[in-house]
């Protein structure tokens, strides 16, 4: 794992060296994580939660699948604007198993969407103009998910 990372880092540094600042040493402090990193992680967790709930409750799949796809689309856009890599599509270990009762499953998803909407709202307020519209659409989408899960 560590070895692969080191090799990748060396490989990446070797190619486009020409434009680099000669004083830009790579033993400096690690760059600050992008402020939108938590929002990207959350989008992936929300997508996984909806996908797991759709798998557990096939009767809800028509409602939940488009919502899961929307969260994946949000993650892809967040990865694009931040330049962060999008993890490959695998179910994160953090995805809790959905409740056996469909109503309880929907209630849990609503709770997560509410938290997600509030996080995107906060991020939008603090964002520079070029990111604000995307974050606004993500906040609005999560609010519509909350409505669609009623």
């Amino acid at each position: 794992m560590l070895r692969a990372g080191v090799i990748l880092a060396l490989g990446g540094a070797a190619a486009p060296l020409s434009g680099c600042d000669p004083f830009d040493r790579d033993d400096g402090p690690a760059p600050e994580p992008d402020p939108l990193a938590p929002l990207l992680d959350e989008a992936l967790r929300l997508a996984a939660a909806h996908a797991a709930a759709a798998a557990a409750h096939p009767a809800l799949a028509d409602r939940l699948t488009p919502i899961a796809e929307a969260h994946r689309a949000h993650a892809a856009e967040l990865a694009r604007v931040t330049g962060m890599p999008l993890p490959s599509a695998s179910t994160p270990a953090s995805a809790a198993a959905p409740a056996t009762n469909p109503d309880a499953t929907l209630a849990a998803l609503r709770e997560r969407e509410r938290g997600g909407r509030d996080a995107a709202t906060t991020a939008c307020a603090a964002a520079p103009a070029e990111r604000a519209a995307l974050l606004a659409s993500i906040a609005a989408a999560r609010a519509t998910h909350l409505e669609a899960l009623k």
Partner: peptide, 15 residues
């Protein structure tokens, strides 16, 4: 929802 249109949501409202 009132119109029976599915899906109920779009991925990026307003975009």
């Amino acid at each position: 929802r009132t119109a029976g249109i599915s899906p109920l949501t779009v991925p990026f409202p307003g975009r």
